[in-house]
Design a protein around this nucleic acid. Structure first.
Lengths: 200, 200
DNA sequence: GGTCAGTGCAAGTACTTACTTGCATAACGC
DNA sequence: GCGTTATGCAAGTAAGTACTTGCACTGACC
């Protein structure tokens, strides 16, 4: 690869990013079929032909978009931030989960539509959340072993994840109801969860 | 209206039902834009022209479909089935919520897509669930007043609803994970909720 | 038997949309 | 200045899609 090619690639990769961003936002609003390539090009401030020259066709573009925004997340920092205090740890995990889920919220919704759930969206959208869910399950298992919590670690993890999931979706669909401080809501939810699962 | 018209109407109303059913199932799979009138007609075993003669245009058809499947639910029998036992009542409410939400699950998902949430789907899909949510909130208020539960009735109702919501969605998206007996899951969830909210 | 609404059928219209293509131009490294 | 590469522009193609229309048929009612 010559120096020229490198420079050229960097120019083109910038337009690629703009196209991906436009695709993403339109996809969230209108869905796969509702989004037209012309709209994407306009939103990205790019000619429609450029879009096809870069990605080949619409499907490949959407695949690239999904992959780009669902790249595997580094979760080491999350794990590193846990300090052993049950409630504090769960709040931190919940906060991370809320953040990652909101990042790909629209893609998650798309993955719930039957047609999309078989495509690339279905798997990719849940990558970060399921990774965190695994962490949660392991955490639960430890705490159960330590006698702090009671129940099945997988069930608890699912419950925990569902709690966050419904919060993220609720905030999107009913913003006026969920106007409260997110931290406070997270703490309330974790509190409910902890009371519910704590061994008594 | 002559007797002939009545008979005719009953014939046409049967085809209307078939069209509505077809619309619904395709809508769930492919979304508003992804569903074509030709597909609907084929699925309903009806000529495409009939579809337009009956409903005028595609939008009106979809509106009619949504309205038809989101008709207000009679909740008296639910209220009547409550007997004052906190846990048993909550299980019954949860079961009703699961059932109604699953009935309109696809429409609920559609209502989460930005474009649809302004249309007729957005409001109609949540009719039954919000009606039940109101019941839940009143129930919670009573139990809080009675000193059995602690917290804000609205928050509790939201939490309760979110719990069920995530279960219904989870069952759709990850059927293998949620293969367990629904009743058992509901009881588990209600148990978690109760422990979480119970005054201590 | 005659009437009439509801439907099937086939063809057609107007529009959108994914995708292409040929050419001019701008950016960049040499 | 020169070649290469990415892009803009404009026009076009092929397919799909919402919706229409005219005609023939059926089946219930009078």
């Amino acid at each position: 690869m010559t120096l020229q090619q490198i420079a050229v690639t960097s120019r083109s990769s910038e337009t690629r990013l703009r196209i991906l961003a436009a695709t993403r936002s339109l996809l969230a609003m209108k869905g796969r079929r509702g989004t037209t390539t012309r709209e994407i090009a306009d939103e990205a401030g790019v000619n429609e032909a450029t879009l096809f020259r870069q990605f080949g066709n619409k499907d490949a573009l959407i695949d690239a978009c999904v992959e780009h925004y669902c790249s595997t997340v580094e979760l080491e920092e999350l794990l590193a931030s846990l300090d052993g205090d049950l409630e504090r740890d769960l709040v931190r995990i919940a906060a991370a989960l809320v953040q990652r889920m909101e990042n790909v919220r629209d893609l998650i919704v798309m993955s719930l539509i039957e047609e999309e759930s078989q495509g690339s969206v279905g798997e990719a959208a849940w990558r970060a959340p399921t990774a965190i869910k695994k962490i949660v399950a392991e955490h639960m298992a430890k705490r159960i072993a330590a006698g702090e919590l009671a129940g099945n670690p997988l069930f608890l993890a699912r419950f925990f994840m569902g709690m966050i999931f419904s919060y993220v979706m609720g905030r999107k669909r009913f913003p006026e109801e969920y106007a409260a401080d997110p931290i406070a809501v997270i703490e309330f939810q974790v509190g409910m969860f902890l009371n519910g699962a704590r061994k008594r």
